[in-house]
């Protein structure tokens, strides 16, 4: 695929910016519009943009691992965040746990945040896996 130099240069700067933005969306989700699902989609769009500009192989090198590995990782994080209250405090599955004192920047942290991080990773992994696989075979 032939790409313009402008897109190529821009994508190198856009990738980190978009990733930071996606994490921002992920974190603010509990109070304002956003969340793991949208965050994951934005992150995957960032990588896809990079792959359009620089070629799929470059993006894969950047990722080191195959995006498919994000699936079990994300699922595990989400599941464990639900399991934590059962294992630690003998509460029902998926009871929300919250830290007493708010942490700087993040605000108050709870098991729901980890759940959302899992969702973020899974959505990112699913989208990238599907799109990378299809574009490889195209």
């Amino acid at each position: 695929m032939r790409t313009t130099i402008i897109l190529k240069t821009a994508s190198n700067y856009l990738l980190p910016v978009l990733l930071v933005f996606s994490i921002f969306i992920l974190l603010r989700g509990h109070y304002l519009p956003g969340g793991g699902f949208v965050g994951g989609l934005i992150a995957s769009i960032a990588f896809i943009l990079h792959s359009f500009a620089n070629g799929l192989n470059k993006t894969k090198e950047l990722l080191i691992m195959h995006p498919g590995f994000l699936l079990p990782l994300g699922l595990a994080i989400s599941f464990l965040s639900g399991l934590a209250p059962v294992a630690l405090f003998d509460l029902p599955f998926m009871t929300g746990l919250w830290s007493h004192d708010p942490i700087a920047i993040l605000g108050s942290v709870g098991s729901a945040l980890f759940f959302d991080i899992g969702v973020y990773l899974v959505v990112n992994g699913v989208t990238l896996t599907i799109i990378f696989t299809i574009s490889e075979s195209a």
Partner: peptide, 10 residues
């Protein structure tokens, strides 16, 4: 405070 997200994750 974001009800949509709270429903989704909690």
């Amino acid at each position: 405070k974001n009800v949509v997200n709270v429903i989704l994750v909690d």
